[in-house]
Design a protein around this nucleic acid. Structure first.
Lengths: 248, 248
DNA sequence: CCCAAAGGTATCTTTTATACACTAAGTGGA
DNA sequence: TCCACTTAGTGTATAAAAGATACCTTTGGG
């Protein structure tokens, strides 16, 4: 470890998605700056989590580190999705004030590499690690004020997530290890913002050998308890066929 | 323009695909270094095309610039696909010698943003712009020696291309404006390295309103001349439906 | 006139999409 | 103890799309 020297013109920003069995959420951190004399609020908005990379650090590690700092979690699903290089992406009026105030030797021109990550939100205790971070439903983001070009980054992340979900079984990263089919369905409905037909959905899932039924059922629910399932990556790898689905 | 100051630790690398109606090719540039005293060959291999970005330049522009420098072409399809940050990606023995020899003030640690681009190879006259660039069939790449981590970058580019082709009508970028269905079929076969059934293929294409038949036919071929077609982006945009195809 | 590739028609099978309504099993309160 | 409530869980029918196979015609060059 030793001294960690940052690379001043390259950063990583993480768009952290979580699912609360109802809707899809993103983790944002509050950014607040108060004038020390007048007490006036100069800045009060939200940002994604990001930081510069260190000289001896690879982008993937930087993203993991950022995620761990914020949530305490390790070995989380992370996917690089785009690199943003607009000249003035950190040059908004508020953003300049903020960077001056931080005064950490960041460059004027910063290129940032976007990662999205999926976490089972039942596993994270935000209050323990960072008082200013909280979950926001993805459909509230368009109406919010975000720092820098973070709204743009969020949009790209959501698009990348949707594309990826269609093609890889990553949605299980957003669920607890043992989940019900209804939870899985709700998750997909939240990701694509569209209703799905229950019976057809279950028929489809029934054809996925890697979604395996456990012997356990839900307990303590005030209605018929649901069967619990498990995602087996092992079975998935063994059974996936190379489908050249073409095309648009 | 004025003086163009490079950012020493950020570059762009382009994986340029071209189609010759037979197979899919990549454009590589020969890298050669000869010892000025002994005449011994120190380095002789191939590289992708890349360069650093300028201080006032966005990644997309850098990629366009590189492509224009190499091929003379502008307004070419370009797609950013991944950013590479391995610590030692430019630190191979030969690569160090090469960078020393170039002596352009590049950093030891360079992060590079990968773009792939698709060009109609009937439009490019390599000899005019760069004597050292030539096309290589993609299935020869695994057996070749490439500079830096360019083989890795190529692999990722091909994967990204295949994914993108399944979802967007970008393959038309690899064909002349007027093309035959057999050419289109051969192209897809080359991209996915798999044979396609002619009649089913044509049935499918027949359902794409944006692939429009012209009144013209091929001339000068020693067999029945094929109908020529055109890709209409306009029609494509109007008729594409939001399909939530889900899933793996 | 023969060859080679283009282009079309017709049939059959398999796969996939979609629509739809009732019973089962728990909890909790009256 | 029974009833109300809530969510789980299931099967069938139909239509459309995709895929394989066979076979036949057209066109132009040599």
């Amino acid at each position: 470890m030793g001294k960690e020297v940052i690379i001043p013109n390259i950063s990583v920003d993480c768009v952290i998605f979580g699912f609360d069995f109802e809707k899809l959420n993103v983790l944002l951190v509050e950014r607040e700056l108060i004038d020390s004399k007048t007490g006036a609020v100069i800045i009060k908005d939200h940002t994604l989590t990001g930081y510069h990379i260190f000289e001896d650090e690879v982008l993937d590690s930087a993203a993991s580190r950022i995620l761990k700092d914020l949530t305490g979690l390790e070995n989380i699903y992370l996917e690089q999705f785009y690199t943003f290089s607009d000249i003035d992406r950190v040059a908004g009026a508020k953003d300049k004030i903020w960077l001056d105030y931080m005064n950490k030797g960041f460059a004027d021109r910063i290129i940032t590499v976007g990662y999205f990550s999926l976490i089972d939100s039942t596993k994270v205790e935000l209050t323990v690690h960072n008082r200013n971070a909280s979950w926001f439903p993805i459909d509230e983001i368009p109406g919010m004020e975000l720092a820098f070009d973070h709204k743009h980054i969020f949009d790209k992340a959501l698009e990348a997530l949707r594309n990826k979900v269609k093609v890889d079984p990553i949605m299980f990263e957003l669920l607890p290890e043992r989940f019900t089919l209804t939870q899985l369905q709700k998750l997909l409905e939240a990701v694509f913002d569209t209703p799905l037909e229950k019976r057809n959905f279950r028929k489809k899932v029934g054809q996925m050998p890697y979604v395996v039924a456990l012997k356990e059922k839900q307990v303590g629910v005030p209605h018929k308890p649901a069967q619990l399932y498990l995602f087996s990556r092992e079975v998935y790898e063994k059974t996936k066929k190379e489908r050249i689905g073409l095309m648009f």
